[in-house]
Design a protein around this nucleic acid. Structure first.
Lengths: 237, 237
DNA sequence: TAGTGGTCTAGACCACGTT
DNA sequence: ACGTGGTCTAGACCACTAA
């Protein structure tokens, strides 16, 4: 009765079979697919194995399950697309360019000198540190990072050399399991950023702004500016 | 011996416990966590239940598993962020505005009148259809959609009323399980788009460009323009 | 009430890495 | 050789939905 554990696992064969039925149009969005018991008999496997296949397809938003009712082909897919935002360094190296960084500003700052946006986020913090870092690909400036960190929560931060250490890499080691929110905005490039990026003033740029929490407190607020045509977010559905 | 199926499932309690250890800093990135057998005894559950908890945390990129070696706290997290791009209609209705659409252009177009980008994608297609649609929130134009569809693959497309039917919703029904690539670009708003969006020329705008495949052929190419400050992509890590 | 999915058990064999 | 995770079984009880 034991399974010979063929090259392709049973749950994968079941997934492939279901995907083939959807792909070929036999099962369209909203269609009820066979029950777990039915698939158990069709494929000659235990219910747990069928369950795993269906659960994974549900996690991938391809199926939708309703307890007491059945399993259905999901409606979405087009409507929910994921974009992956990587580390700057990874992004730059992935397009085959040599990466380096230059930290041009690193100072402790007073709470009342913060921009309004930052004030609303760092309500309970007194000790804040700001860094400005330019990220280069093959010697060309591709991204400007402006970051504010609550060094009450990450005391070592101000003692790092950010020409060598990536701020994100450092923070994730010190403050694991963070949670954040971000926005991508198209903006005209302010003067100072334009100079650093080597583009004309009022060139359109992508601004990614993110603040990151740990245990309910904002650890860091970061703005990443990049010239619109030299860099972009990219992803696969 | 049977489990009483408490309000919170056993696998969830195990996940919570592991997350608590990571969150509190007891287990940091790279740390090896207890083996499945050890957790089986600790929590008094079967190995399958422990396995589910660990598998889910691995899928969520919080743990990393190495066969023959062990389970470890993952390094990433900061470095891979997901942005969800929804349907325009969903996005507009989610911010509490009334949605409506206006299709202002819908014509079959000849292959040699395509822009270069489109030519490279629709190599094998002869019958192409282009639509321009403006999406409104509370009567205000928020997004302009320009789309080219291979109606050799989706013949019904040209007969729809896109004031009422969402192009994405229609396509996903006709061409299930598609696969696509997209880019988000910051650009200066061209004249015609600026007029439709009701913004000044050269206002910075977000341009999301996506082409979508089915069975290896490009089904549709779409450009979605939206004013930089009135709309944005947003997500949670 | 009958049928569905949600969860769980107590075993098992296997592939892989480390020793 | 040994311990790890990867997969699987043949049952089971439960919660939920629909008839």
């Amino acid at each position: 009765m034991s399974n010979k554990s063929a090259p392709t696992p049973a749950y994968q064969r079941i997934k492939d079979s279901i995907l083939a039925n959807i792909h070929s149009g036999i099962w369209t969005a909203g269609t009820a697919i066979p029950t777990e018991m039915a698939l158990t008999e069709t494929f000659g496997v235990s219910r747990m194995t069928v369950n795993r296949a269906l659960k994974e397809l549900t996690d991938e938003q391809i199926l939708e399950r309703r307890q007491g009712s059945g399993t259905f082909v999901a409606q979405n897919k087009f409507n929910q697309t994921f974009i992956t935002v990587h580390n700057v360094r990874q992004d730059i190296e992935q397009i085959g360019k040599h990466y380096h960084a230059n930290c041009i500003f690193a100072k402790q700052i007073a709470y009342d000198k913060l921009p309004d946006l930052a004030k609303s986020l760092f309500l309970h913090s007194q000790i804040l540190y700001e860094v400005h870092i330019v990220h280069y690909g093959d010697g060309e400036p591709l991204q400007v990072e402006r970051r504010i960190v609550d060094i009450g929560l990450v005391p070592d931060f101000s003692r790092q050399n950010f020409n060598l250490i990536n701020t994100s890499d450092f923070l994730i080691k010190k403050v694991p399991l963070v949670h954040g929110k971000y926005k991508i905005i198209a903006a005209n490039c302010p003067d100072d950023i334009a100079q650093l990026l080597g583009v004309g003033k009022d060139t359109p740029v992508l601004l990614l702004r993110r603040h990151t929490y740990s245990s309910g407190l904002v650890v860091t607020l970061v703005e990443m500016w990049q010239a619109g045509d030299s860099f972009m977010f990219e992803g696969v559905l």
